[in-house]
């Protein structure tokens, strides 16, 4: 058995109809590693991380997550998902539940943690993301940045081994981006294995061990943030960087 990472893509392909959205992806993410995925819109970066928790299925190749092969009949996908936190671009908080209920729902019903204990942990998590005073607020009463921080707390409540972020700051007003990034930096510094689809290059420089650049469904380039931002090796990554770093 070869050594496997926490997340291991081996020759993964995926099609949407005739469109090859993931082309022969091979990528291994080590435990405690933070990988930032960037690339132009439509390059397949969201699809890539959505495959990891089975929100999308792969066509061929192997995808091994936490030692379990996806699509294998022996792999219990629901069980595996409890080990993977997923933060969405549009937050997707449950609008009919308070911040605290959003955080405690899965711990109570999936992990079977007693309610009092789950609520205690939930309050601590909300305090950790700076929302101790918003425990009983409904999502509609929170700003975008606050909602996204609740969403991160909701993932942390499951004590996952992996956290995936799908453009977590793209739907936010500029002044709210840093409050979310700060929380993500704190999570990264605690040693979480993370894959983050983002164009926030400051975040990438600060915490990522690796930046992966995708274009048209393929991984075009991969390297440390320093290598990638200072010495991009391909024309496509140079063109992409000149667009997002212009301002």
């Amino acid at each position: 058995m070869t050594k496997t990472g926490m997340i291991d893509f081996r020759g993964v392909n995926k099609w949407f109809g005739a469109l090859n959205v993931l082309k022969d992806i091979t990528l291994s993410v080590e435990p405690r590693e933070v990988v930032v995925v960037c690339g132009p819109s439509g390059s397949g970066k969201s699809t890539l991380i959505r495959c990891i928790n089975g929100l999308e299925t792969i066509k061929d190749g192997d995808l091994i997550v936490d030692g379990q092969r996806l699509g294998d009949p022996a792999t219990n996908m629901t069980q595996l998902r409890t080990e993977i936190g997923f933060v969405f671009q549009s937050f997707n908080l449950y609008p009919h539940k308070t911040a605290l209920e959003n955080v405690t729902l899965a711990p109570i019903h999936v992990r079977k943690i007693p309610r009092a204990e789950a609520e205690q942990a939930g309050r601590e998590l909300l305090a950790k993301v700076g929302l101790a005073d918003k425990v009983d607020a409904y999502p509609a009463q929170l700003s975008g940045g606050q909602q996204q921080r609740v969403a991160i707390a909701r993932c942390l409540g499951m004590r996952p081994k992996i956290m995936l972020f799908d453009e977590p700051t793209s739907a936010l007003d500029p002044e709210m981006i840093s409050e979310v990034l700060d929380v993500m930096v704190a999570v990264a510094e605690e040693g979480m294995t993370m894959m983050v689809v983002t164009h926030e290059m400051g975040f990438a420089r600060k915490v990522a061990q690796r930046v992966v650049f995708m274009d048209a469904g393929a991984i075009v380039e991969s390297g440390t943030p320093d290598e990638f931002f200072s010495h991009p090796r391909t024309d496509r990554s140079r063109a992409f960087l000149s667009k997002i770093l212009r301002h």
Partner: peptide, 16 residues
């Protein structure tokens, strides 16, 4: 759909 995806991602069963 995002609601169902969020619930799926946190490991809730179909009935949950």
């Amino acid at each position: 759909t995002g609601q169902v995806e969020a619930a799926l991602a946190s490991g809730l069963s179909r009935w949950q």
